[in-house]
């Protein structure tokens, strides 16, 4: 019970202090619109909204979560308020889960903004919502834990932003969104399979359009594996680097 009080308070504080701030909410709304417009404007052939939806959802989550978490944790580390959390009588795992839960919820919110826009333009009755929800949640969790991994690796806020891009942009171009996996050069393809977003985008493609290329169970398994690895490695590093 006591742990739950601490967990929910950290989550609520982060939601209020960071994620529910007007600039972040507007980011969640503007980002998908900007991406959708970009696809429409840049594509030489007419693009279907349904084809765009998985990619825009995945990118909204990725961009919304990674840098937000990396920046907020680095910021709290810098002004030493994170130390207060480390001194609280709650386990490190629970503390890190509480810190990441806000970003996960923010990512899920970001994912459904393009869905809301799309619902005014196309029929979404054939979408497998159960699968969409599962994949959105897992993409948000993996992206957030990637943000955590970045936060633990840097010491300055600006480094968190730069380091986030080091991961996000390769994912953006290699996840099968712009170029289908089968059309990627053979020597780059293994790199693509080493990125979590590849599996997330593939589930969304299967759930929304039925054109994913990897088995759904393998996609879920890989995302779960990435999440566990990133979380474990990050908490190990927090313990090693921040508790001297």
């Amino acid at each position: 019970m006591k742990a739950w009080i601490a967990f929910s308070s950290i989550l609520m504080k982060d939601m209020r202090s960071y994620y529910l701030k007007p600039p972040n909410i507007s980011w969640g709304l503007i980002f998908p619109v900007a991406w959708t417009l970009m696809f429409f404007l840049r594509s030489p052939v007419p693009v279907a909204v349904r084809d765009l939806l998985p990619g825009v959802m995945a990118l909204s989550i990725l961009f919304g979560t990674t840098s937000m978490l990396a920046v907020t944790i680095t910021f709290e580390r810098k002004n030493r308020s994170f130390e207060r959390l480390l001194l609280a009588p709650i386990s490190l795992n629970l503390l890190m889960l509480a810190k990441t839960s806000g970003a996960v919820l923010f990512g899920v919110f970001n994912a459904f903004v393009p869905v809301l826009f799309a619902s005014f333009m196309i029929t979404l009755s054939e979408v497998n919502w159960f699968m969409v929800l599962g994949s959105v949640l897992l993409i948000a969790v993996t992206s957030t834990f990637l943000g955590l991994f970045i936060a633990v690796s840097v010491s300055q806020v600006f480094e968190a932003q730069t380091f986030s891009n080091f991961f996000r942009f390769p994912m953006l171009f290699l996840c099968g969104l712009f170029i289908p996996l089968s059309e990627l050069p053979v020597f780059i393809r293994p790199l693509s399979y080493a990125l979590p977003l590849t599996y997330g985008v593939d589930i969304l493609k299967t759930a929304i359009n039925g054109d994913g290329v990897i088995a759904v169970s393998l996609n879920f398994l890989m995302l779960a594996a990435f999440s566990i690895f990133l979380f474990s490695y990050s908490t190990y590093n927090v313990n090693r680097k921040w508790i001297l």
């Binding site: 742990a3 009080i5 308070s9 950290i10 009588p89 709650i90």
Partner: peptide, 10 residues
């Protein structure tokens, strides 16, 4: 209030 919550106070 937040610091109290970290220690599980209701």
């Amino acid at each position: 209030i937040f610091c109290g919550a970290l220690y599980g106070m209701d």
